[in-house]
Structures are given as C-alpha cells and as structure tokens.
C-alpha cells in the first residue's frame, strides 16, 4: 500500500500568512504530529519574497511596492528575490529521516524538483533540473526553488511560473546599477519562461495543481490526500504571521 501524505490547497493568502503556514507545518511535522505535506498556494496581495540572507533595502524598491500594492517578506530559506504574481507556489515539508529524502541537500533538491518536472510533463512540458535550484524548459527558467532544514525537517518551497511580466518585476526589484536596467530586463526575458509562454494559452491554477499533485505522487510513490491545517498549525500560523513575518524587525533585519 502506498504511503499517504497530506495535500493542502490554501490558494490566496498574504505573503506573511503563506510564510507562516510553511513554518507552522515545519514545526508540526518535526514533532511527528502531521504526515509529510505538500501545499499549493498563491499570493494575495501579490508579493516579493527575498532570501533569508538578502538585504531588503538593497534588493527591493519599497516605494514601488507601496505604490503598486505589493507586499514583501523575508523567507526562512536562502536564495534570491522572487516576485510572486501569476504562479503556483508549492511547498513540501518532510522529516529529514524519511527514506524518500536524501541527507545530501543537493540530492534532495534534485529529487523534489523531480516532482515538479513530472508535474510539468503532465502539462506536456519537458523540463529539467539545473543545479543549484532551477528548473528549465525550452532552455529557460520556469521554476525557482529554495530549501531549508530545521529541527531535522526539510522545507522546500518554489514557484512554477504561469505567466511573467519582466518589466513589472524589475520595477519592484532594485538593480545594482540603473544604467544596466534595460540590459538586465532583456537578459531576464531571454532566460525566463512560463507555462503560458510555452503552451501558448492560459492554464488555470487548478489544472496546474492537479498536474503537480500527480507529479509528487509519481516521484515519491505516495498518495496525496487533501487535508486541512490542524488546530495546532492554525495557532502557530497566527503566531508566526504576527510575531515574525509581518514585522519590520524580521523583514528589515538585513
């Protein structure tokens, strides 16, 4: 019989709440209170997330965010700044001791990205994992991923781009040198793609979530059963949202 993992589809939440949910799941799963969990979600309002080590004021145009109603949040994972707009975001939380997860961080990136690649295959998109943390299709990036390990538990989250507006993204992100902004925009346009761009049509969140569900089930030989956050996780989500992710102290710490 296949092992059963939990599937959460939480859809639209704020950046603070999304990051708080991932962390709440991590705590709950590290204590063995809930099974390994895969979550699919989106962001409302749209938001920029920055990597744990990035300097907020160095990466993000805070005035532009304010003007466009875009939130910003620091992740607990490393990696770069991401504009979460038209995308499906996934997270997976699983004990480090689980037989399906390698102790080796790079190997586990490859394995989890394998689920995304199988999911994209369901949508008839061929893609491959490019270390350190990208998935490419048609030679361009379609998914970025970031992993942390805390309390002997792995959390990896990442984006699957449904559509992308590079100009708007660059109006929200700061570039090292304004003189090269146009060059950076054209470079990124050549390096980034999306499901819409490849298939030439819009695919809904639900269609992508269904495809990704199959991807995870196939990659890990498991069954994903739709569930909800436990009371403990809701309580932790509220706490982390209020005390961490929505605070100036956390978001401006670097």
């Amino acid at each position: 019989m296949k092992e059963k993992w939990r599937l959460l589809i939480t859809e639209k939440n704020s950046a603070y709440r999304n990051m708080a949910m991932d962390r709440a799941e991590l705590v709950s799963i590290s204590k063995g209170n809930t099974p390994p969990t895969v979550r699919f979600f989106t962001w409302k309002p749209r938001a920029i997330s920055i990597g744990y080590f990035q300097s907020l004021e160095d990466e993000v145009n805070l005035d532009a965010c304010k003007n466009l109603g875009v939130d910003y949040v620091r992740r607990i994972t490393g990696g770069g700044a991401v504009f979460h707009d038209k995308e499906l975001t996934y997270s997976i939380v699983i004990p480090e001791s689980h037989s399906q997860v390698s102790k080796n961080i790079m190997e586990s990136y490859g394995r989890i990205c394998g689920a995304i690649i199988k999911g994209l295959k369901q949508l008839e998109i061929d893609s491959s994992y490019i270390p350190i943390n990208d998935i490419i299709a048609d030679g361009k990036k379609i998914s970025g991923n970031a992993q942390t390990r805390k309390a002997k538990t792995v959390l990896q989250h990442g984006t699957i781009l449904m559509d992308v507006d590079v100009e708007e993204m660059f109006s929200l992100l700061l570039v090292p040198n304004e003189k090269i902004r146009d060059k950076m925009i054209s470079d990124v346009k050549q390096r980034v793609t999306s499901i819409k761009h490849i298939l030439g049509k819009d695919i809904s969140f639900n269609q992508i979530a269904d495809a990704m569900r199959i991807g995870f089930e196939e990659e890990f030989n498991i069954e994903l059963n739709k569930g909800i956050l436990t009371d403990e996780e809701i309580e932790l989500t509220n706490k982390f949202e209020k005390e961490f992710f929505s605070t100036k102290e956390w978001n401006h710490r670097r």
Binding site: F53, Q54, I76, G78, G79, G80, I105, Q147, T148, R254
Partner: peptide, 15 residues
Amino acid sequence: LKITGDFFAYPEEAI
C-alpha cells in the same frame, strides 16, 4: 561585516 546575497547556508543562523 554584513554578508548578504542569494546563496544558501545551513544552518542559516551560521552567517
């Protein structure tokens, strides 16, 4: 000294 960027370090607090 402030070390920032889009790299990864485990554990993160190590930086």
